[in-house]
Design a protein around this nucleic acid. Sequence first.
DNA 1: CAAAAGCGTGTCCGCCGGATACAGTTTCTT
DNA 2: AAGAAACTGTATCCGGCGGACACGCTTTTG
Lengths: 248, 248
Amino acid sequence: MVGEDEKRSVFGDQAGSVELLWGGRERPSRGPRPALSLELITRTAIALADAGGLGAVSMQRVAGELDFTKMSLYRYVPGKNELVALMIDSAMGEPPQLPGGWRNGLRAWAETLTAVYHRHPWLLGAATGPRVMGPNELGWTEAAVAALADTGLSGGEQLDAVVVVSGHVRALAQVSASMGLGSARATEPEQVMSAALNELLVGRADRYPAVAAALAATEADAAERDRADEFGLERILDGLEAYMGGSR
Amino acid sequence: MVGEDEKRSVFGDQAGSVELLWGGRERPSRGPRPALSLELITRTAIALADAGGLGAVSMQRVAGELDFTKMSLYRYVPGKNELVALMIDSAMGEPPQLPGGWRNGLRAWAETLTAVYHRHPWLLGAATGPRVMGPNELGWTEAAVAALADTGLSGGEQLDAVVVVSGHVRALAQVSASMGLGSARATEPEQVMSAALNELLVGRADRYPAVAAALAATEADAAERDRADEFGLERILDGLEAYMGGSR
DNA sequence: CAAAAGCGTGTCCGCCGGATACAGTTTCTT
DNA sequence: AAGAAACTGTATCCGGCGGACACGCTTTTG
């Protein structure tokens, strides 16, 4: 009926992204040589996003940055969604080489992923909703799963563990991204969270006693603020380790 | 110099949201009675978002749904960002009453939060980037922190633990939201992830051996698929429990 | 009974993603 | 060699978006 590809299957709307991300695009032989390239367009778009967030990326601006009309971009990319998909996979970059030992490996994985989110904060907002994984993104997953391959965890458990760790990294990067809020420009996630929470809690401590107490305790003890980002990850790793030890 | 409020401080752009979310808006006494209300507008916008995602929410559509012009909405809301902030806090709703015991409490907290994300999938995309917490959202945090109050965890650790758990819930809901992809409409997060991954991995198992192996193992063993969502949370709780036991 | 304040509307603007038609360039086929 | 075919970048146009602004109308206050 639908005389197209039979490539739809699981990917309904996203067939275009799948082709762009995974398909081997061969240059057609006729017609003039393209003046642009997917890589160049993607790189330019990423630069714009790094500088001004995802909102600063429009077809017009990307094209303008390259001294082309916006419509020329549509010769390379079917639409903006597909461009964003390319941006995501390109910004992720090659997955890291991990040190041996699942715990060290996963920790290094989390750290490099954190660095990626720090470098491209817009990834936090772009990677939401139904999406297609690109080669690099799947490569990151591969690296993390590979680190867990010999732990005795089942296949599903390995995947779940990766989801947990990556979710935690995301969550922490999210908090850290709130740094862009005021003029304070604190560097530690918790400091910002503290500042924002503190301001809201002024005169409302009775309504939110537990948060207020936790916050007050945090401010009194400056030492613990340094290990803020490590705490969560180590707890997760502890939980995995305990499970592996108990069920193997 | 800036003859406005002295309320900016940490909240640069978001002052409007802060006022709307937290400020006691008193009705001015002069002028005609407002035909609309913040609550009604917010509710309408949420209904649109529930039905068609965040993208379906525009000032025009919200106003149209209420048989008003879009500009009338600006008498109640300074801009769309502020409306979205209201939507988020309203959609979160009142925080749940948690059962006793930190572990049971946190588990129940995670479950109800999951239900919220399931009811309003657009929350996953809306709550990204620098944001201001609303009363309800802070209430959720309060509930979770309160559950951890007597565990011996320090204030900062309590906050971190909540970040970890909520991050995990978000991550899992994110995977679960990908259900909207194809025609399969699977109900279990992992099944969808499996389906999408499988399709990509066809003929590429050599490039992603660990993921392929994990996936193959998952498909062979149907039993473990059921506890997919619990696994991560239980590992996190295990890690917290071990830490509490060791450091108290 | 004004004056003031607030409400809803109509008009206008710039920007966005995208469809379509078109002219120029390159390559393949005859 | 000469079309024909395929591909390039461009110009024009569209509907929808968030939002600024000016206006007429309604209600309360002096």
